[in-house]
């Protein structure tokens, strides 16, 4: 078969490809198919840097069902929808997240109409997607604790975390916080409140992150167990 190995790609001087190519054992596509670049501005960037010519030799996967080139399509929002999804019920998950965004807008607009000061009005963010981005960014932990066994004892050792993992943990915490609520309150409303709080660097999820950081700081002494 047409097998191209990981090494060939990683070592060829293609910065673009090294971020695109992945070895995915579970995908039904052959591993040399690259993920599509479906946003117009991402494509513009590639054209400017001249790397688009190198993509002309690589077959592309088909764009997924939740990807469009519209500006309203946000990859992080899509991820959030997927994480909220249970048993493949994408329609329900999407409705939840959309209602969550609607709630964010309503809460923010309420605040906006209440404040009389022009400056404060400008501070209030009315775009739910930007609030989502800020919230996720603010909740990302820098370290995580992993159990490492030394001398029969399992220590919780602070260990650096990759960006992707941090993002995943942040989103998982946000969703979990959305689910911890009274039964009268809706998930989308609770999640909206959590997102707004997190974007302002307050709230339960930020506290959780700070707790984790404190724990990591407390377990500093074990950090060398990572290598011993």
């Amino acid at each position: 078969m047409f097998g191209i190995t990981k090494i060939q790609f990683f070592n060829s001087n293609l910065k673009v490809l090294s971020t695109i190519i992945q070895q995915n054992g579970m995908s039904q596509y052959p591993n040399y198919y690259i993920k599509p670049i479906y946003k117009k501005d991402s494509q513009e960037e590639l054209i400017k840097s001249g790397e688009i010519k190198k993509l002309s030799h690589l077959p592309t996967r088909a764009a997924l069902a939740d990807q469009t080139s519209s500006f309203s399509n946000d990859p992080l929002a899509n991820l959030l929808i997927n994480y909220c999804m249970r048993e493949g019920n994408k329609i329900l998950a999407r409705n939840l997240v959309e209602q969550c965004f609607e709630n964010i807008k309503r809460l923010q607009l309420e605040k906006y109409h209440k404040t009389t000061n022009e400056e404060d009005k400008h501070q209030i963010d009315l775009d739910p997607k930007s609030i989502l981005h800020k919230a996720i960014e603010n909740c990302k932990p820098i370290l995580q604790l992993t159990p490492i066994k030394r001398g029969g004892v399992r220590y919780q050792v602070p260990v650096p975390i990759t960006d992707k993992k941090a993002q995943f943990i942040s989103m998982k915490w946000l969703i979990a916080a959305g689910q911890e609520k009274e039964s009268t309150v809706r998930f989308n409303l609770q999640l909206a409140r959590e997102l707004i709080d997190a974007a302002n660097n307050t709230g339960r999820v930020i506290k959780k992150k700070q707790d984790l950081h404190r724990q990591c700081e407390a377990n500093r002494a074990y950090a060398h167990y990572r290598w011993s």
């Binding site: 494509q43 993509l55 077959p59 592309t60 996967r61 088909a62 764009a63 080139s69």
Partner: peptide
């Protein structure tokens, strides 16, 4: 057309349920 191809519009999605 080339841009469409890179955007993943022109690939037939042959994935099926496992």
């Amino acid at each position: 057309i080339e841009k469409m191809r890179i955007a993943g519009l022109l690939t037939k999605d042959y994935r099926t349920r496992e």
